[in-house]
């Protein structure tokens, strides 16, 4: 069962369309996997609608824009929208189906260092970078902290860290105060959003700068 959800604040911002694109995609993927947050989102949207469309007396001051009305209705065709076929990716011989939110947003091919492989999500979002991160069976990410934040959303497989173990759909937002060492027995695929380069803490790991660059 999913135990880790986006904070209420994050979900509110998401429902209002105010989160940056990479984080919006992350929350969308979680919501797709999590019935609890689906319900909460529907409630928030209904609430937002009431606030946004509240009647005010001044509304009557605004004239009916006939020109805009004619522009819109001059074309009677409709926009058909269809489900996109699911996209599969293969990493280290394992096949994964990507979440619906990622079916039309592009991603690069996977770059590998040891048991880690990363594919960059094609979203231009300022200092935020989103990636698909694959950790092969028996792999781990060396102990690290970060100056900004790191969001990890488990898509498939399992991993655990000092705080416990995680299942697909679990949404973990960590900031500079945390260090952690995620490990996986079976291997896993994650969606990550990172706001600045990672900092490795321990001896030999300090030599692992390339990994810092890989997973940022």
């Amino acid at each position: 069962m999913i135990k880790h959800h986006p904070s209420n604040e994050l979900l509110v911002q998401f429902s209002e369309g105010n989160l940056p694109a990479t984080l919006s995609v992350a929350v969308a993927i979680h919501v797709e996997m999590c019935p609890v947050c689906q319900k909460q989102l529907a409630t928030l949207e209904a609430k937002n609608a009431n606030t946004a469309f509240e009647d005010v007396v001044n509304d009557d001051d605004i004239c009916f824009d006939q020109l805009m009305f004619d522009n819109i209705t001059s074309d009677e065709s409709i926009d058909e929208v269809y489900d996109q076929p699911a996209i599969k990716v293969e990493v280290k011989g394992k096949e994964y189906t990507l979440p619906r939110a990622l079916t039309r947003i592009g991603h690069s091919s996977f770059m590998q260092i040891g048991k880690l492989a990363r594919s960059r999500i094609a979203l231009d979002d300022g200092a935020l970078r989103a990636s698909l991160l694959h950790i092969d069976a028996g792999g781990e990410i060396p102990d690290h902290t970060h100056t900004g934040f790191e969001l990890t959303l488990l898509l498939d497989g399992e991993f655990s860290d000092e705080d416990g173990s995680y299942v697909p759909g679990d949404f973990m937002m960590l900031d500079g105060r945390h260090n952690h060492t995620p490990k996986t027995t079976e291997g896993c695929l994650c969606f990550t959003v990172v706001s600045s380069a990672l900092h490795f803490n321990k001896g030999i790991s300090k030599l692992l700068n390339p990994i810092g660059n890989l997973i940022y």
Binding site: S15, E16, G17, A42, E45, A46, N48, A49, N50, A52, F53
Partner: peptide, 15 residues
């Protein structure tokens, strides 16, 4: 859901 909620989501997406 309500029509207003649907129109809100359309507006939120456009925004």
């Amino acid at each position: 859901g309500a029509a207003t909620t649907w129109v809100y989501t359309v507006m939120r997406n456009a925004s």
